[in-house]
Nucleic acid binder design. Sequence first.
DNA 1: AATAAAATAGCAAGGCCGTGCTATAAAGAC
DNA 2: GTCTTTATAGCACGGCCTTGCTATTTTATT
Lengths: 206, 206
Amino acid sequence: MPKIVDPEARRLSIAEAVFRVIQRDGLAQASLRSVAEEAGLAIGSVRHYFRGHDELIVFAMRSLGDRLEARLLGHLPDLLDPGTPRSRRQEITEALLSELLPLTEQTRAETDVWLAFSAAAKNRPDLAEEVVRMYEGVRALVRRVLDGANEAGGLLEDLDLAVETERLAALLDGLALSTGRTSPELMKTVLRRHLETLRRPETVTE
Amino acid sequence: MPKIVDPEARRLSIAEAVFRVIQRDGLAQASLRSVAEEAGLAIGSVRHYFRGHDELIVFAMRSLGDRLEARLLGHLPDLLDPGTPRSRRQEITEALLSELLPLTEQTRAETDVWLAFSAAAKNRPDLAEEVVRMYEGVRALVRRVLDGANEAGGLLEDLDLAVETERLAALLDGLALSTGRTSPELMKTVLRRHLETLRRPETVTE
DNA sequence: AATAAAATAGCAAGGCCGTGCTATAAAGAC
DNA sequence: GTCTTTATAGCACGGCCTTGCTATTTTATT
C-alpha cells in the first residue's frame, strides 16, 4: 500500500544530522529547521518521525549513549575470558578504557556532543535520565574491569575498589573534558601511568 | 550632575543574576529579558551596562573565572611559606584542591554554571578564551603545589611531574563533572587517596 | 532653581523557533 | 488502474529573542 521506509533507520540518520549540527554549531542551534536542512529533508518530514523538538533531541542523545555503550561492551568478552594471558589483559584494559577518551577525530566529536547533552541535562529531567544511565554504566564497567584484574591477581592488595572505581572513572571523565588542550599522547600516558600505580609489581622470578 | 552609581558593582550584580538564571534554567534561558527580570531591572537598563547579550554572557563568565581564581590563590601563601610544617602542608594542599570540587551548595552551583559556560565555549571563541585561561591556571596551580611538595621532600621520587599534574588536574575535573551522583564524602575520599599515592611513605624513625 | 549627564525604561522592527494543520507525492495491495 | 496508507512537504500563527532608537527619571553640580 504505502511507500515503505525503515523508520528506525530514518530516525538514526536524522539523529546523525543532529550530531553534526551540534558539533559544528552547538546544541542551541540544533533546531528542527537546521537539523532538517542538515539531513536534506523538509521540516515537515522530520516531524513525521518525531513528535516535536524535545523528542528529537532525547532520541539523538539516547542513540549516542547506545553507541558508546556498544563500543565499550565490545571489549568485555576478551577481558572476561579467563584464558587470556596477563600481558594481553593489560593491553585490552587500556584499549577498553581508551574508548572513553577523545583520542581520534571520531571519538573527539562524540565526546564534544556528549558534553553538550550532559550540560543541557542539568535542567532537563528527560535528558538527565540518559546521563545517569551512562554515569552508572561507566562506573559499573570500570568496576568490572578492576574486579577482573583483582581476581586475576593483577592488582595491589588492600585496594578499596569502590574508591578506586570512582578515582579511575573520574580521571577518565576529566581527561575527556579537556578536549583540545591535552594531547592524545598525554592522555594515553596519563592513563597508562594510572593503571601502573594500581598494578601489583612484577614479582621477580623467585 | 548625574545620578552616580558604581558601574562595576552594577555589572557584577547583574552577572549574579545571570548565574542564578543559568543554575535554575540553563544557559539557553539566560536571555536579556530573563536576566533583567531576575535582576529586578528593565531590559533597557541592563543594556545600559552591556552592549548586548554576548557581552553580558562573556562578562559573567569572566567574573566567575575571576572569583574561582581568587579563591584558589588565597590558599597559596600558606603553602609557599617554607616555615609551614609538613603535617599542615597536607591539610592545606587538600583544602586548596578541594576548592575545585563541588562539596558545598555554593561551590556546586558554581561548578554547574561553569560547566554550562564550558560547554557553550566549544562553539564560541570569545568564551573559549576564558576556558583556556582557567584550564591553564588550574594546571599551573596544581603544578606549583606538586613542585612545592616535591621540594619539601614530601613526594615519591622519580615522579614525572608533568604527567602527575595532568593526572591530578584531570581527576579534579572529573570529580567536578559528576555533580549530584558522587557524594561530597566520596569525592574527598578519592582526593585524599590520590594524594596518598603520591606521598613519600613516612620514614619510620630510624 | 536650573542644568547636564547618567540611569532607567520602553517601543517597535525583524528574525528564528516550534507546532497545528493541510496538501501533495509515492508505491504496495487489490 | 484504483485505492489506501505512508512519506514528504509547506504554510501560517503566536511566541520569545536581540537590538536600534527614543523617552523619562534622577541627582550632583552650578
